Computed example of a mutant assay.
Amino acid sequence: MTNRIAIFLGLFLIAAAAIDIALFGDEHMIFLGKKLFALIDWAAFWR
């Protein structure tokens, strides 16, 4: 992956999250963040 592609993907994800929060609020983003943290913790256990 080149730097240009990585920067574009990063900006795209940030923009998508910002639009999602602006339109629908941040309650479900907090929920997904908690679930992602639990998934990372679970994966670290099996490592």
Rank of each mutant, 00 (worst) to 15 (best):
D20Q: 11
L23A: 10
I30P: 00
A17P: 03
L11R: 06
T2S: 14
A22R: 04
M29G: 02
W42G: 05
A22I: 05
A44F: 12
K35F: 09
G10W: 00
G25T: 00
I40F: 03
N3T: 12
F45R: 15
A38G: 00
G33W: 05
I7N: 00
R47C: 09
H28S: 11
F45I: 15
L36N: 04
A22N: 01
G33F: 11
F12P: 00
I19C: 04
W42L: 07
I30T: 06
F24N: 10
H28L: 14
R4P: 01
I40E: 03
L32Q: 12
F8W: 12
A6F: 02
A15K: 05
I19A: 13
W46R: 04
I30W: 10
A16S: 10
L36K: 08
A16N: 04
H28K: 12
A44W: 06
R4S: 06
D41K: 15
A17H: 06
H28F: 13
L13V: 05
A44M: 03
W46T: 05
G33C: 07
I21S: 07
A43W: 01
L11V: 13
L11S: 09
D20E: 08
M29A: 12
A17V: 13
L36S: 09
I40Q: 03
L13A: 04
A16D: 08
A15C: 07
G33H: 03
R47M: 15
L23R: 09
D41F: 14
M29T: 14
M29Q: 14
I5R: 12
L9H: 08
A44E: 03
A6M: 04
I19M: 09
D20T: 11
T2M: 01
K35D: 07
F31R: 06
L39P: 00
K34P: 03
I40Y: 01
I30S: 02
D20M: 08
L13M: 04
D20S: 07
A43N: 01
I7Y: 00
K35W: 10
G25P: 00
F8V: 13
M29W: 08
I21W: 09
L11Q: 10
A43S: 00
F12M: 06
I5D: 12
A16C: 08
G33A: 03
F8C: 04
L39R: 04
I7T: 03
I40G: 02
A22D: 07
F12S: 10
F12W: 10
R4E: 13
I7A: 00
D41Y: 13
W46H: 09
I40A: 03
E27I: 13
R47S: 09
H28A: 12
L9F: 13
D20R: 11
L13R: 01
I5C: 02
